[in-house]
Design a protein around this nucleic acid. Structure first.
Length: 507
DNA sequence: CATCTCACG
DNA sequence: ACGTACGTGAGATGC
């Protein structure tokens, strides 16, 4: 429905009320299968729809729908409408559960016009900034390539993991090359970082890879996504994109714009305000840990959030018996890794790899954590037991995430258990920001302000300069109270705000 | 088209 | 004994 709503909006047509079979399927069956019309048609109607490829072709010779012969277009469009109606008649009676229906009606359906608007607004991208950065990256890469060829004693494709593996582990004879399932040497960043302590070449390759990634995926690709009509980039959110309730962002993905490294975060300087306006970024502080503290009912964590303390420092203090005023960055870093690990369904192996410590040590940390916060283990055990009994887990809003592999044997069971532990936490956070987004248009109605982007725990707005502080006040209030009145969380939700001429400055 | 790699929360 | 942190999308390579 979102796609159709956007097409119709070009002709000033709006539609209400709506139903959407894709969203109905998502509310009913997230985690079980995908929710596209073609798949649903095969599953429920036993009918394979005309593939759009048959009309448009693919790749370079692909045509647009307006150039499809009318008789073919009619058959396709009529089938599309017919199947959608038949799917609706099939799925509507499958929604007897009050909770699933509530999720569909309050967290899925109302988002369609909200996301349509955001996608239509798009965000302004400064092509010149990207172009300059692209040239700079290209120069630096060329310099690195020369060094790499010199160190290797020959030229090769640095971007080919296969060729790089052969250079490192065969030609140069570096020890410790490990081949994966497919017989290729592993050359991921973890591997190269280890080698880089002893060898120049892998260190240079790591630098090259970072630049290559930034250039191809961001500075170059983003320019190609600038709409010539609007001068802006219009992402597409896939409302059913993640099983947990999060969205996916595609064409381009604006939910993975770099920020973690200094080089990378400069990309955000190219995502800019319209003249006379300002970008505002509001993000939830530690929302998943807050939800964990509430769901697992951990008094110490809840108290720390209520008191506005540094949660990772508090965890470290509790775990390692270090007073807060004697906390060191290294101890805090370890506690932070453990806190994140808990959200992901912690394992000794995973924590050991993340912290680069022996597995036994990591396991000792985890044991200690469970000792100090026994509610965490109870939450994990209860969640897995629930998943085994019901075949799904749920968010605090009642969103179901099905866990069909929870009964599997072997390594798949481990994946399923960790996913089951994570899903209610990640999913509840997703539900909360969805609620904020749904309430936002009414809250900012009349203000010279547009909501542009969502990045899982963050919303980005474009606001006329004079209204910046008012919008921050209003939008923050909507976000911080988004769980209410459905949920009475034992922890406060806190939203940090920033503003600036571009996305980097707004952070 | 599968695989590897790497960007984000 | 084995293989593991959760959720995503996209570009380049190579078959």
């Amino acid at each position: 429905m979102k796609y159709d709503a956007k097409v119709l909006a070009n002709y000033d047509v709006s539609i209400a009320p709506i139903d959407d079979t894709m969203l109905m399927s998502y509310a009913l069956f997230s985690g079980l299968h995908n929710h596209g019309m073609d798949g649903l048609s095969e599953r429920y109607l036993g009918h394979t729809p005309i593939p759009i490829k048959d009309l448009l072709g693919s790749g370079k010779s692909m045509i647009t729908f307006d150039r499809v012969p009318i008789d073919e277009a009619v058959k396709y469009a009529a089938e599309d409408a017919d199947i959608t109606l038949r799917l609706w008649m099939t799925l509507k009676p499958k929604m007897p559960s009050a909770r699933v229906t509530t999720v569909y009606e309050t967290l899925e359906r109302p988002l369609v016009p909200v996301l349509s608007q955001m996608e239509r607004h798009g965000i302004r991208v400064d092509r010149e900034t990207l172009s300059r950065m692209s040239n700079s990256f290209a120069q630096k890469m060329a310099g690195l390539e020369a060094e790499i060829y010199e160190l290797a004693g020959e030229s090769f494709n640095v971007g080919s993991p296969k060729q790089l593996g052969e250079i490192l582990f065969e030609k140069m004879g570096i020890e410790g090359g490990k081949k994966g399932k497919t017989g290729a040497y592993a050359t991921g960043a973890d591997v190269l970082e280890d080698l880089a302590t002893e060898h120049e070449l892998p260190a240079r390759v790591l630098d090259w890879r970072q630049l290559s990634k930034l250039k191809s995926t961001y500075t170059d690709a983003l320019q190609e996504h600038i709409d010539p009509d609007t001068g802006r980039v219009h992402t597409s959110y896939v409302q059913t994109g993640a099983s947990t309730g999060r969205f996916a962002s595609t064409d381009p993905n604006l939910q993975n714009i770099p920020i973690r490294t200094e080089e990378g975060s400069k990309i955000r300087e190219a995502l800019v305000e319209d003249p006379g306006k300002t970008l505002i970024a509001l993000d939830y502080s530690q929302i998943e840990l807050r939800i964990l503290a509430h769901m697992a009912d951990i008094p110490a964590l809840k108290q720390a959030f209520s008191d506005g303390l540094d949660i990772h420092a508090m965890t470290a203090s509790e775990m390692f018996d270090v007073p807060l005023d004697e906390m060191t960055p290294e101890i805090r870093r370890r506690a932070k890794a453990i806190n994140f690990g808990v959200i992901y369904g912690i394992s000794g192996f995973g924590l050991a790899r993340n912290l680069r410590i022996p597995r036994g040590e990591a396991q000792a940390f985890i044991d200690r954590y469970f000792e100090r916060f026994p509610g965490i283990r109870t939450y994990m055990d209860d969640t897995i037991a629930f998943a085994k009994k019901h075949g799904h887990v749920a968010t605090l809003f009642g969103r179901k995430i099905h866990t069909p592999e929870i009964a599997a044997k072997g390594p798949r069971a481990g994946f399923a258990r960790r996913a089951a532990i994570n899903a209610p936490i990640q999913g509840t956070a997703a539900d909360i920001i969805r609620r904020a987004m749904i309430r936002m248009p009414a809250a900012i109605a009349g203000m010279p302000c547009k909501m542009l982007l969502q990045v899982h725990d963050e919303l980005l707005f474009e606001v006329e300069d004079k209204a910046v502080d008012d919008v921050i006040t209003v939008a923050r209030d909507i976000m911080e109270s988004a769980a209410k009145p459905t949920l009475a969380l034992d922890v406060p939700l806190v939203v940090d705000a920033g503003k600036g001429a571009n996305w980097a400055k707004a952070h």
